[in-house]
């Protein structure tokens, strides 16, 4: 990596780390749009998850919690399949997080390009908590990976977001 880009990346990380330290940590839903499904990477900070659970979060219990608080439907209300395929503990800008990989699949014959995400994970309890829903990759738009786009945020009482990849 050229030195200037390395310096810029280092500054960005330091900036983001400092911002995170000054702001209550928030959640992310990072979406990878594929031809017939969507892969979601869900990142939830343990400090805020602990408040939501009113207890200590565990990797084993996290998939069940996530599925109780996250669903996906077509715009007409037909349910998508939501499957948590893995959960890992991680550190993100000095904050401990759980990172879950979630496979989202439309009903047979349905489009994987638009859906309604319903989620109140953490936000059902923590009133100032924000979930950032971000489009990170799209098989039909390879430029997206270089410049992920914020699709919207979820904060109590808002728990639904209509989702489409930036280039439809």
């Amino acid at each position: 990596m050229p030195r200037s880009r390395l310096l810029a990346a280092t500054c960005m990380l330091a900036y983001a780390a400092a911002t995170a330290a000054h702001h209550a940590p928030n959640s992310f839903v990072r979406l990878d749009f594929r031809e017939r499904s969507v892969k979601a990477e869900v990142m939830v900070p343990l400090s805020e998850l602990g408040y939501a659970l009113q207890g200590t979060p565990t990797v084993d219990a996290f998939p069940g919690y996530l599925l109780r608080h996250m669903s996906v439907t077509t715009v007409r209300g037909a349910a998508w399949t939501v499957k948590v395929t893995s959960v890992h503990a991680m550190t993100y800008f000095d904050q401990p997080y759980f990172r879950a990989e979630v496979e989202l699949a439309p009903p047979p014959g349905g489009s994987a390009r638009d859906f309604v995400l319903t989620s109140d994970a953490v936000t059902h309890e923590v009133r100032n908590h924000v979930v950032y829903v971000v489009a990170e990759r799209d098989y039909a738009d390879t430029t997206l990976a270089a410049a992920p786009r914020l699709l919207g945020i979820l904060q109590y009482p808002v728990r639904q977001l209509a989702v489409r990849p930036p280039r439809g």
Binding site: T19, F28, A52, R127, N128
Partner: peptide, 24 residues
């Protein structure tokens, strides 16, 4: 009802992973 870890109607930072946070 609920838990509060900051004021609710304060400033808002926008995070997109991999990018410099904006707003605030």
């Amino acid at each position: 009802p609920g838990t509060y870890t900051d004021v609710v109607k304060g400033v808002q930072v926008t995070f997109v992973p991999g990018q410099r946070p904006t707003g605030g």
